[in-house]
């Protein structure tokens, strides 16, 4: 296995076209355990961290640009990003340990295509887009369109994610992410739920809700979103969110949770995530959310 370290997007796409059996990596926190578990070795490993654009984190008037290989510790350390997207930052802050977060990236969390990847529901509710490079240039794709099933993506051979685009939120907008794990730290989500709301005088004007770990890919929950838009966030609306979230699940039975348990927890977490996002949107965060982040 060769180790290759390109310093530009163009050099990387050339390497990938010359070595069809090459695999890109960023933090290698999924790649190395998979190789150890017996996944076939690629001919070459292409380290994306030497490319400046993939390691850049910047903001402009209208949007944030997050390099696909930026270690997530840089996102959790950014007070500005946390102020605008507390839910996205709490999602990446739940990945692994400090040791893992020194290395792991949004690009790796997305493209590893685990149904339980913590950042993905939060990226989806915030409408993030992936800038994807190949030998023929770049294209911009909604994050929601990248993962097609467990371990598979819509990226063609030789394509990789360069960076993510994240529009600054409108006024009175809040997001949240909650997950359920048996252990507080260092565990994989049984259910993850993310919500983002915009309020106008207490009435919801926009809502996005996405669930992780309850279907082959992260899923949006349009029925729950429709139950919120045009209404105040009251008990009735929250009950409708919970029912729609449970209904949207297509989970598996495994040692960590049964289908019935996952469905019920998905409803509860979606409801709580909406409530927290609403508090944040109205600037009335109670701070109770932290304790419920994982239990």
């Amino acid at each position: 296995m060769d180790y290759l370290s390109p310093v530009s997007v163009e050099e990387a796409t050339t390497m990938l076209s010359q070595t069809p059996d090459a695999r890109v990596f960023a933090g290698a926190t999924d790649v190395i355990p998979q190789l150890r578990a017996g996944r076939p070795e690629p001919q070459a490993l292409v380290d994306l961290k030497g490319i400046e654009r993939l390691m850049a984190l910047s903001q402009s008037d209208g949007s944030w640009t997050i390099g696909a290989a930026v270690p997530t510790v840089r996102l959790t350390e950014s007070a500005e990003l946390r102020a605008e997207f507390p839910g996205l930052v709490e999602a990446v802050g739940l990945i692994g340990s400090d040791q893992i977060q020194s290395r792991c990236s949004l690009g790796g969390n997305l493209c590893n295509a685990s149904p339980a990847a913590d950042s993905v529901p939060a990226m989806i509710v915030n409408g993030m887009r992936a800038v994807v490079a190949s030998g023929s240039g770049t294209r911009t794709v909604p994050v929601a369109d990248i993962v097609t099933g467990p371990g598979s993506t819509s990226l063609a051979q030789g394509e990789f994610v360069v960076e993510f685009e994240l529009d600054r939120p409108p006024a009175n907008t809040g997001d949240a992410y909650l997950r359920m794990t048996p252990r507080t730290e260092m565990d994989i989500a049984i259910v993850g739920a993310s919500a983002r709301l915009t309020l106008d005088d207490g009435v919801c004007t926009a809502a996005t809700i996405a669930l992780g770990a309850v279907a082959p890919t992260a899923v949006r929950v349009p029925d729950a979103e429709a139950a919120l838009v045009g209404r105040p966030i009251d008990d009735e609306a929250l009950a409708a969110v919970a029912a729609a979230a449970s209904e949207a699940c297509n989970p598996i039975d495994d040692k960590r949770g049964t289908i019935a348990y996952r469905r019920q927890v998905a409803g509860v977490l979606a409801r709580r995530a909406v409530a927290t996002a609403a508090e944040r949107a109205s600037g009335r965060e109670t701070g109770e959310h932290r304790d419920g982040a994982s239990q």
Partner: peptide, 22 residues
């Protein structure tokens, strides 16, 4: 595999599992 931390080192000031670095 990154689970136990026995291989922790500081790499450019950040705590990292040496078993997950090439």
């Amino acid at each position: 595999t990154g689970d136990c931390g026995a291989c922790s080192v500081l790499l450019d000031g950040r705590v990292t599992c040496a078993c997950l670095v090439f």
